[in-house]
């Protein structure tokens, strides 16, 4: 699996991106999906992961929501074993490369390895929420936020409040959204 981070992806597909298909998964269902943008016009596929849906006991409303998202994307929709379906689709199009976007899910990594063993997989990065790649202490949100707050406002030139210095910003002791 290669990470596309250091490469510039322009509108004109380079050699590597020609003959590619795009695997769209459930963590990036927007038209501006970076993998779709990296290979304009390339065949794209989404696969409902039957085993995962069973594991999670997924209910109808979630599937309808996902389906509505998919209908706004230029993707072929399939179901079954994700790696098998994506590989069959890639072979059907004579693809020499598969592009996708990142996900933290272990299942994504496992599927990615299976794809990459047969056809090279390129994970096109998303723009990170924090423009920072240094150390973050993840033991508690408050520790994370101590550093993250310097980057969390992006490039915005908003003035600081009079009572606010970045190191003093308050952190609530809560658990964030359940779900």
């Amino acid at each position: 699996m290669t990470d596309h981070r250091d490469e510039t992806i322009g509108a004109a597909p380079d050699e590597a991106i020609r003959n590619a298909i795009v695997w769209v998964h459930g963590d990036c269902l927007r038209p501006g999906n970076p993998a779709l943008a990296a290979a304009p016009g390339a065949p794209a596929i989404f696969v409902f992961d039957d085993a995962l849906l069973d594991d999670y006991g997924t209910t109808l409303k979630r599937l309808v929501f996902l389906y509505e998202c998919l209908l706004e994307l230029p993707v072929t929709i399939r179901r079954g074993d994700v790696a098998e379906q994506v590989l069959a689709f890639a072979h059907g199009h004579g693809a020499e490369r598969i592009l996708t976007t990142p996900s933290p899910a272990p299942r994504f990594l496992e599927i990615g390895r299976r794809l990459d063993a047969e056809i090279p997989l390129t994970v096109v990065p998303e723009i990170p929420f924090l423009a920072y790649d240094g150390h973050l202490d993840l033991r508690r949100f408050s520790r994370y936020w101590k550093v993250a707050q310097r980057y969390a406002y992006g490039q915005a030139g908003l003035p600081l409040d009079e009572d606010e210095a970045p190191s003093r910003a308050r952190v609530d002791g809560r658990g964030g959204p359940v779900g």
Partner: peptide, 12 residues
């Protein structure tokens, strides 16, 4: 923004 950061934190 702090609530958005919670999601980033959990994903990390």
């Amino acid at each position: 923004i702090q609530e958005l950061a919670w999601r980033d934190y959990f994903q990390r």
